[in-house]
Amino acid sequence: MDKNQIGIQYMQEGNLEEAAKAFHDAINENPNDSVGFINFGNVLAALGDHEKALKFYKKAMELDENAAAAYYSAGNLYYKSEDYENAKTMFETAMKKGLDTSDNYFMLAMTFVNLGQGKLALPYLQRSVELNEKDAEARFQYGLVLAQLDFIDEAMVQLEKCLEIEPNHADAYYNLGVSYAFKENAEKALEMFQKALDIQPDHLLAGHAKQLIETKQ
């Protein structure tokens, strides 16, 4: 087993120190291989040293301009530091370099959401759930963006699918309630708000919305 595989195994076990040693050895053995640098960057990112991790990802890009995983990993770091413009560039580059994964499409979509460009996020959320139908969070975010763009019926379909995967998703129930309220179905809206509160009793938005409907009845 090569050093990169050993390091990945250590990472999966949560042993970051041994993983770092293995990836360090991998870099020493193959200094022109981008994989070791990406993996070492991933350890540094997991340890919270984002600045140093970024240097390793950039080194990987220098060694192999088509190292899609390096762009994706760098994008995640930029996203975490709320540098959405650079995150967008990295996720888009990863996609152009052939990274056809639900995670990359989802992160690119969420970058657009955070940039206030929901319409641009839509196709990437759609692709994300096509590639991973069981991703509850992607379904939820897809539903939210659809609702924000006034595609209420389509949004409800995604929120329902989110709840099929994750039955205790209080925010999905809350947003379903909002959708039913928008469609003037107060009874169903109340039912959804109550389900959100059953799961999360301190859900302020659901509590307020429920109160609002009850005072109108």
Score class of each variant (00 low, 15 high):
residue 14 G to T: 10
residue 41 G to I: 07
residue 137 E to H: 10
residue 60 A to I: 13
residue 105 Y to Q: 02
residue 112 F to M: 07
residue 86 N to G: 01
residue 173 Y to E: 06
residue 39 N to G: 11
residue 197 L to G: 05
residue 212 L to S: 12
residue 73 S to T: 04
residue 147 A to H: 14
residue 69 A to K: 15
residue 9 Q to H: 13
residue 94 A to N: 07
residue 209 A to K: 00
residue 125 L to W: 03
residue 32 N to W: 11
residue 81 S to W: 13
residue 155 A to N: 02
residue 16 L to M: 02
residue 28 N to F: 14
residue 94 A to G: 00
residue 186 A to F: 12
residue 125 L to V: 08
residue 114 N to Y: 01
residue 205 L to Y: 10
residue 182 F to N: 06
residue 197 L to R: 08
residue 115 L to W: 09
residue 56 F to D: 01
residue 138 A to K: 10
residue 210 K to A: 01
residue 1 M to Y: 15
residue 86 N to V: 03
residue 108 L to E: 01
residue 156 M to Y: 09
residue 214 E to A: 03
residue 144 L to D: 10
residue 42 N to D: 02
residue 94 A to K: 03
residue 160 E to H: 07
residue 38 I to M: 02
residue 68 A to S: 13
residue 133 E to P: 15
residue 45 A to F: 07
residue 34 S to K: 15
residue 19 A to Y: 05
residue 63 L to R: 02
residue 216 K to C: 08
residue 143 G to D: 00
residue 126 Q to E: 06
residue 109 A to R: 07
residue 47 L to A: 09
residue 151 F to W: 09
residue 44 L to H: 03
residue 131 L to I: 00
residue 8 I to P: 09
residue 168 N to F: 11
residue 175 N to S: 07
residue 86 N to R: 11
residue 79 Y to H: 07
residue 81 S to N: 10
residue 11 M to Q: 13
residue 84 Y to A: 05
residue 79 Y to A: 00
residue 62 E to L: 14
residue 117 Q to Y: 04
residue 34 S to C: 14
residue 16 L to A: 07
residue 180 Y to N: 01
residue 60 A to V: 13
residue 15 N to D: 08
residue 212 L to N: 11
residue 65 E to H: 09
residue 141 Q to F: 10
residue 131 L to N: 05
residue 104 N to F: 07
residue 171 D to S: 01
residue 196 A to Q: 06
residue 4 N to H: 13
residue 66 N to D: 02
residue 78 Y to A: 02
residue 173 Y to Q: 02
residue 216 K to Q: 08
residue 7 G to Q: 03
residue 37 F to N: 05
residue 1 M to D: 13
residue 148 Q to G: 13
residue 29 E to N: 01
residue 162 C to R: 06
residue 195 K to D: 06
residue 48 G to H: 05
residue 115 L to Q: 05
residue 217 Q to I: 15
residue 20 A to L: 14
residue 133 E to T: 14
residue 1 M to V: 14
residue 76 N to V: 15
residue 184 E to N: 15
residue 185 N to P: 14
residue 140 F to Y: 10
residue 173 Y to A: 03
residue 150 D to M: 15
residue 65 E to K: 03
residue 45 A to K: 00
residue 178 V to T: 04
